[in-house]
């Protein structure tokens, strides 16, 4: 009898093993490429210029988590864009790069980038395929030369194979590296929050009364800049933050227009629960701090947005109860699946 049990156990282990393998194979064969969520608009990213393949995505992911992109092989893209923090650098007001050098701005999330018209807080970069050049070569981020990165990758058989699988030959070029990184980053789509499920009427999801009340307040007082469903309109605005000690002039650094001084890109509100601290310089540790800013602390600095000075007052009228309801609604924008998905994680 004992023998029979052992035999059965062994047999079931065998079946389990088989099953596991066939699951992996299924996963491999079901790479879907870029899928536009039903409640999202058409993407801005030029998909026709980058053929998405599983091999391209896997290469992009490997490069995203590759510390050889930095001068001393210590910092990867994933160092400042951590998945569990919504692909931001949790706990850092400004980004923390090579040799413990500090940047001047808070790491923005790698999220829904296919819908971004511009990149960085000042919008200086207009094409996702050109974006990684900036952090790789920035002396306070990765401080490396692209030529050196390519040399390092060429010495690794792993990458020679991966570039071949992704692009058909062993050639490792800057353009291929950038295209692969874009494939990974474009597929970092966050569209599975409770908000999305409610909007798509999935599994009978509905807002609770408090969430619904918060949503109503949001649409009334926040939604014109943080436009649904991406929760940003992609514009540059001065939201009345007191000018910081480094006098960061934001958008005007890229355009040199005085009317762009102190304007920064409107950030998305998705995954706020994972991406503290907030604002371009990470000055607020909590969302409560952010709402208090809008309700009471807006400053009349140059180019203050007209929406921040309506009806003879600075900021947005919010009483304590409004704030609570807003915070309740904002929680529905957290996408647990996005920050835990294995396919976006370092392997």
């Amino acid at each position: 009898m004992k023998k029979l049990y052992l035999l059965l156990l062994a047999f079931s282990l065998f079946i389990y093993a088989c099953k596991k393998e066939s699951n992996i194979q299924n996963a491999v064969s079901t790479f879907l490429g870029f899928q536009k969520p039903a409640n999202f608009p058409q993407p801005v990213y030029k998909l026709e210029n980058n053929k998405f393949t599983e091999a391209g995505f896997l290469l992009g992911r490997a490069l995203f988590y590759e510390p050889r992109l930095s001068r001393d092989n210590t910092i990867s893209c994933g160092s400042c864009h951590i998945q569990s923090s919504g692909f931001t650098q949790h706990g850092h007001d400004v980004s923390h790069g090579i040799d413990d050098r500090l940047g001047s701005r808070n790491s923005p999330p790698i999220m829904n980038l296919a819908w971004n018209k511009t990149f960085m807080w000042d919008g200086g970069i207009f094409d996702l395929d050109l974006q990684p050049i900036s952090p790789i070569t920035n002396p306070v981020e990765m401080d490396e030369k692209i030529e050196n990165v390519l040399l390092k990758l060429k010495q690794m058989p792993k990458y020679v194979t991966m570039f071949n699988r992704a692009f058909g030959t062993d050639e490792i070029t800057n353009a291929r590296m950038m295209k692969a990184l874009s494939q990974f980053m474009v597929l970092c789509v966050s569209a599975n929050s409770k908000y999305d499920q409610v909007m798509r009427k999935e599994q009978g999801q509905v807002f609770t009364p408090d969430e619904q009340a918060g949503y109503t307040i949001f649409k009334e007082r926040c939604g014109s800049c943080h436009r649904e469903p991406l929760f940003t309109d992609g514009t540059f605005r001065n939201n009345g933050l007191a000018i910081g000690p480094n006098n960061d002039q934001g958008r005007s650094m890229a355009t040199l227009h005085p009317e762009d001084e102190y304007k920064f890109k409107v950030p998305s509100l998705r995954n706020l629960g994972y991406t503290s601290p907030y604002m371009h310089d990470g000055r607020f540790l909590t969302l409560n701090g952010v709402l208090t800013h809008y309700a009471q602390e807006v400053q009349a600095t140059p180019n203050l947005d007209p929406l921040m000075q309506q009806n003879g007052r600075l900021g947005i009228a919010l009483i304590a109860d409004d704030k609570l309801k807003l915070l309740t609604f904002l929680k529905t924008l957290d996408d647990k699946d996005f920050v835990t998905r294995k396919d976006l994680a370092e392997q």
């Binding site: 960085m120 000042d122 070569t137 002396p139 030369k145 692209i146």
Partner: peptide, 23 residues
């Protein structure tokens, strides 16, 4: 970026680079 080959490869960098990565 695939149309930017040879001397136009935007590799940036402070020394010999002829490309602004940040802008």
């Amino acid at each position: 970026i695939t149309k930017r080959t040879g001397v136009l490869d935007p590799t940036g960098g402070m020394d010999n680079g002829m490309y602004w990565g940040w802008n």
